[in-house]
Design a protein around this nucleic acid. Structure first.
Lengths: 234, 234
DNA sequence: AAGTGGTCTAGACCACGAA
DNA sequence: TCGTGGTCTAGACCACTTG
């Protein structure tokens, strides 16, 4: 017997999603009390489902009046993405070339003063390609204590996946710092694009669910092939 | 007699914030039931307050175990920002120079195929400075129907503020599309920086609470003086 | 005045973690 | 097993919009 795995509010949200898709923009949605009765649930749960739809930008709500179908939007909320997932979304075939992978000690210098080592860590430098074209150069630092046998893994696979499946470390949230740069000679060579091209440098710190740092990375992304879309709320 | 304006969950969150600030990282926070009893509130409300703290990255929660103080983070969640607010945060004095402001018709061409006019709209081109140094060039399009007398306003002030206070149109959310570019001769002249500098172009669409588009803009931001920090969640 | 969404309550049951 | 957080209920009252 299959168990009911999904939270009620999610199932309700999905039901409402299809129902809403057949309405016109600014059409009213049935009241919360009516929905609660119809689905045999409490009003709180209905409200949670509606909140999900609101986060997706499908509906908007006016206090004292009702909820209504919102005009369609193109861009979805920014989410934590792995390279592999991003490539799939864009319909490109992702591949990875490992340039170097080594253990470095805490007294060695690091790029950029972004990475300051307090203990021995692995440094993995990889070139990321989509349909065999270089799109991004990534340098990742992971403390040895986080993933002791990292160098034995297949580093052409997703580092996130390795961290999660082999070491139980899941990247749950991340801080990113984004700067526009110009590709210099050195990068141009590695990435096989002309020097002087526009690009973006992203410095990133990844945390697990407990808010502990488990990864730092620097990635250089080719500007002609990368762009960033996101939406923000007040 | 002053009315109690603030939602209980917000007051609770503030109380807990100060309480948590005196604990050490990974220290446990009292259980939800205990907090509910202590503050004479229901557990639901306590949970809402804790959710606020979790969004701020102050605590993390482990199912079946408890809630704990999270390690400190530098970056806060990305929010919808006006230029003026951003400058204040960085401690710079914001000023604005209006380059041009005019009504254009729907048959005139527009930059970039980003802006496609379906009705007459105002085009406002402004240079934004921090401590008198040019930081950003902004071209904003606002439909005439949204703000009929826009050209009579003081356009060195915040457009958002004008839209809100004079026309009751508040920008509630926005989609942004970000691309790295290289400053060309034309931009170099206006912004008084060398051609070939790194920069970021942001194409932005602003919406009101009903999800209706009220503004489009293109801004060119000098890369040496601008960067973007944000955090993301799975 | 009536109907809507916004906030809050008191209590129930479930799923998970630690001892 | 017991205490914790996670989900849900039924119902109350308030704030707001609309006729």
């Amino acid at each position: 017997m299959a168990k009911e795995e999904v939270r009620k509010q999610f199932r309700l949200a999905d039901l409402l999603r299809t129902e809403i898709s057949e309405l016109a923009v600014h059409d009213p949605i049935p009241g919360e009390r009516a929905l609660a009765e119809r689905f045999g649930t409490s009003r709180v749960t209905i409200r949670q489902a509606l909140a999900l739809l609101q986060d997706d930008g499908l509906i908007y709500t006016v206090h004292g009046s009702g909820s209504f179908v919102a005009p369609p939007r193109v861009v979805k909320q920014m989410r934590l993405h792995s390279f592999t997932e991003e490539m799939k979304q864009k319909g490109l075939k992702p591949t990875t070339k490992v340039i170097s992978a080594q253990l470095i000690n805490d007294d060695e210098s690091a790029i950029d003063d972004f990475v300051v080592l307090s203990e021995p860590a692995f440094r993995v430098e990889r070139l990321r390609l989509g349909n065999l074209e270089p799109l991004s150069l990534e340098i990742t630092y992971i403390n040895q204590s986080v993933a002791p046998d990292l160098l034995k893994e297949d580093l052409t696979k997703s580092l996130y996946h390795i961290l999660k499946s082999k070491y139980g470390q899941e990247v749950f949230s991340a801080d990113e710092h984004l700067t526009p740069i110009i590709i210099d000679q050195e990068y141009a060579k590695v990435m096989k694009i002309p020097a002087g091209s526009p690009a973006i440098k992203i410095q990133r710190t990844g945390y697990n669910a407990r808010g502990e740092e488990i990864e730092r990375s620097i990635s250089i992304r080719q500007g002609n092939r990368w762009d960033f879309k996101y939406s923000i709320r007040i």
